[in-house]
Structures are given as structure tokens and as C-alpha cells.
Write a protein that binds this DNA or RNA. Structure first.
Lengths: 156, 156
DNA sequence: TGACATTAGGTGTTATAACACGCATCATTA
DNA sequence: TAATGATGCGTGTTATAACACCTAATGTCA
């Protein structure tokens, strides 16, 4: 029962602890899922992070979000949001407008083109989720979510 | 019960599917764990991937490993192993020697200095694992590992 | 109001990841 | 053994991440 990951990584020795095995399982699984996800997005010319930004901005419509609020909503840490948005602006996926009441703020919104892209991607993404996680039943998914949430509980 | 991640990401809307929620939970948890892990390694001057390399090479002693075998054992995909090893060689953590029987192969081994570093890190890493996952009991860890292994099963 | 801290955001620079390609070595087979 | 293909590894180049620093705008309080 223990040792599947061990085999995947061609390891001879057992893990030194259950904690280590759990940690590596999380990292390994994310890597597998993440790589496939990026691969899926490649034909559409955006990265996983960029897709994430689009989804967040769509959810925030019709208002936009300022840079830091957007950064805080990203699933992964992203220290250089400015240039991430620069690229997306160049691609025509987002627009930035300087706030008039507080001129420090830059409101970022999704463009029609960006909106069309995420909308189109919805079904592709759902299909990918189905492919990568469809073999788990509802109870298994719920338990997995529950345990991962528990992990983050003392990690926040 | 559902919606912890939703709150973490300041989301207003619910997830569109259990699959999506599971996927994002995996990504988010890995990011949290990974960031802390990198932070822990920072004082020692190496990255998570570099630590991983050292651990693999220590496990392969006294022989070394050729580049591709090493790459296949890495937990995450790493397309540019050559320059990763270049940097580690510059740091004095590994040595590379051209195989004499098959001159295409470059055997990579860990140096005494590298070995000392991973050995020193063992307890630091265990402490970090304890901190990040110590609040889960054995059964929970086992279930988590089991479910993540199941996820990868149709993802390989 | 002026000095100071705080907040939001951008910039400069270096390090690393990603991708495509090239070269050398070895295996295979006519 | 010469030709062809496969394998292992390195290199060139571009894109992105990471880190520290800088500027402008706002808030605060003597």
C-alpha cells in the first residue's frame, strides 16, 4: 500500500516518515496536474496563472480589481503581478485604468476578448478536470478536499 | 464544510464543480507547503529542487546517476537539468565525471560537502514536516496519501 | 500646513525555467 | 565497415520569476 510514489521515482529506500511521504505526494500530484493543465492551455496562448487571472476578473465583473486584491486572490504566490498584467494587457485580455478618486489605485478589468477566451475555456477546463479527477467518486473528492483544507489549517 | 478555500481566495461564487475544488485545493496546498519549504532552505543557499537532487544522489551512493536517470527521479518536471547541475557543481555540492565505457554518459555524484549539507538538513526538514503536517494523525495522512496516489493513477 | 509614515504600484537587475537545436557517442544492420 | 538512426548531453536564446529598490499618492498628527 505504501510505496507507489516510491516506485514512480525509482526509489530504493522507503520514505523516512509518513509526513515526508504525504508532502511528496502533494508536490508530485500537483506537478502532474499542473503540467497537464499548462499543456491544455498552450494552444490558447496563455499560462495557468494568466487563466487564473482571467477567471478572477470575470468573477469580479462588472467592477475590476486593484493589483494587490488580485494578487491576494491568486491561488499561488506571485510576486511580480505588474509584469504579468503587462503581458496580458499586450495580449488584449485585460485593461488597466487609473482610479480617479484614489490615484494610487489601478483598476484591472477583463476585456471582451479576455472574457470570450475564459468562456470558451470553461468546457475545455471542465473536460480536463473530468479526465484528471473523474475517476474519483464524490465521497473521495470530498475527503480529499477536507484533508487538504486541514493541512492548510495550521499552515496559514 | 465546502468553501474554506473559497474564503482564502476572497471568492464570492462557489466552485463550479467538486473536481475544480479538488484541483484548486491540491494546487493551493502545494503552493503553501512549497513556499514554506523554500523559505526553510533559503539560509542554506539551495532551492527545493537542489535539495531534492542532493537527497536523490545521497540515496544512490556510492554510485552516481546519469543525468536522465536523475531527471526521472525528480519529483517535479525539470527540463533543464544540465544547468541545474552546473550551478550545484559551482557550489561544490556535486561532481560530474564522464563515463569511460560509454562516453555519452555523465555520472553525477554527491560531494562530501553536499553530503554534509543534506545530512545537516535532515532534522531541519523533519521539523518542517512536523510543523506543516504534524496536526494530522496517522490515519489522516494515510488516507491523504492513498487518495493522492489514486489521483495520479489515471494521470500517469 | 508640513513632516512623516503608509500604501499602491512600477522598474532594474539577476537568476532560473522553458524550448529548440546541435554535437558527440554508441548501437544496428546492410 | 560504412551508413543510418538512436541516445545522452550540452548550448543559445527567450520568457518568466524573484528580489530589492524607487516613485507617486494618500493618510496622519504635531
Amino acid at each position: 500500500m505504501t510505496g507507489s510514489l516510491q516506485a514512480e521515482l525509482h526509489q530504493r529506500k522507503a520514505f523516512t516518515s509518513l509526513h515526508q511521504e504525504a508532502h511528496l505526494n502533494i508536490v508530485r500530484t500537483e506537478a502532474a496536474l499542473g503540467d497537464d493543465f499548462e499543456q491544455m492551455l498552450k494552444p490558447y496562448g496563455i499560462s495557468g496563472t494568466q487563466f487564473n487571472v482571467l477567471r478572477i476578473l470575470r468573477g469580479a465583473e462588472p467592477e475590476g480589481l486593484c493589483r494587490n486584491e488580485l494578487r491576494d486572490r491568486l491561488v499561488t504566490r506571485m510576486p511580480d503581478v505588474t509584469r504579468l498584467l503587462d503581458r496580458m494587457e499586450d495580449l488584449g485580455l485585460i485593461v488597466r485604468t487609473r482610479d480617479t478618486s484614489d490615484r494610487r489605485l489601478v483598476s484591472t478589468g477583463i476585456t471582451k476578448q479576455g472574457r470570450r477566451l475564459v468562456d470558451d475555456l470553461d468546457e475545455v477546463v471542465q473536460a480536463e478536470h473530468q479526465r484528471s479527477l473523474g475517476h474519483l467518486n464524490k465521497k473521495q473528492l470530498a475527503t480529499l478536499i477536507e484533508l487538504l483544507t486541514l493541512v492548510r489549517r495550521t499552515n496559514l
